[in-house]
């Protein structure tokens, strides 16, 4: 379970451009929930993910994972239980290292990075199986550098790598936004499959309303650092893209544009 309690976050604090993003923002995400988060630019979606992962500091409030306070825990330590896929496919892999080396590193997550061999030869068959599940033919390119792969192939690998070791949370930060429609579809299907198979708790920020409606069992719409829509269960199942668009328009009118 992930709890955000009374979060406060300001940008440019102490200057004339001071902006309050979160003021007493609270959110609880339960075990096994797959939450899609939508909202206009600047509504705080990505900031929320960054706060959860510890990429940016927090000005007030607390963050708890399974009841344990992680507010002061540095970013890299939090990643032990978190897998994260970014919008930019280049961020999830090492371009100058081979597919095999990347897979081996991801497999070592949580274990000590000591002087044992980086690649365990006995695990190669397992890596091949994982890669062939992507259906991109990567299993035959183990010694190819990841830098020569296409964005879609790299994002598929990034997704695979971030979920290879046991994690509790999967954070997806607009992970299909930089991909062409067909590849985006493939990656999204893969995401749904992995989340289901591994029974992960996932938070997915997306601008694609259809994905937000089709995937996940809870939906949040954010606006100016607040959740303006939070539905799950039957309410979520019956939700349509049109309803979301209506909500979006309502918010925009409030803002006067």
């Amino acid at each position: 379970m992930l709890e955000l309690k009374h979060i406060e976050k300001y940008y440019n604090q102490g200057t004339v451009n001071e902006m309050c993003l979160f003021d007493d923002f609270s959110l609880t995400i339960n075990q096994g929930e797959f939450v899609s988060v939508v909202g206009s630019n600047g509504s705080g979606k990505t900031s929320m993910l960054n706060l959860i992962c510890g990429s940016i500091p927090l000005d007030g409030g607390r963050i708890l994972i399974n009841g344990k306070d992680i507010t002061k825990m540095p970013e890299f330590k939090r990643q032990r239980t978190i897998g994260r896929v970014y919008q930019n496919p280049a961020v999830g892999t090492c371009p100058n290292m081979t597919i095999l080396e990347n897979m081996s590193m991801a497999d070592t997550k949580g274990k000590p990075f000591n002087l044992r061999w980086g690649t365990d030869r006995q695990r190669i068959t397992h890596y091949r199986e994982l890669l062939s599940s992507l259906g991109l033919g990567l299993e035959d390119k183990l010694d190819v550098k990841v830098g020569v792969l296409s964005g879609g192939q790299r994002q598929a690998m990034a997704l695979l790598m971030s979920t290879m070791t046991p994690i509790e949370f999967l954070i997806l930060d607009e992970h299909t936004a930089a991909l062409d429609p067909k590849t985006a579809e493939t990656i999204m299907e893969l995401t749904g499959k992995i989340v289901k198979e591994k029974n992960l708790t996932a938070i997915m920020v997306t601008h694609n309303l259809r994905y937000a409606v089709e995937y996940g069992n809870r939906l949040l719409m954010m606006h100016q650092g607040q959740t303006v829509l939070d539905c799950s269960g039957d309410e979520k199942t019956s939700l349509r893209v049109e309803d979301l668009l209506e909500q979006f328009n309502a918010i925009s009118i409030e803002c006067g544009n």
Binding site: P74, E75, F76, K77, Q79, R80, G83, R84, Y86, A90, V91, G92, T93, C94, P95, N96, M97, E101, S104, M105, A106, T108, K109, G110, K111, P112, F113, N114, L115, R116, W117, G118, T119, S162
Partner: peptide
Amino acid sequence: YMKTRSGYLLRAVGDNETLVTSLAKDK
């Protein structure tokens, strides 16, 4: 050394710092 786990991490940090953080290691 470059073929060890530690060596992999060293190569990774120059290549893509964020990935090292994602691997739960202090870059």
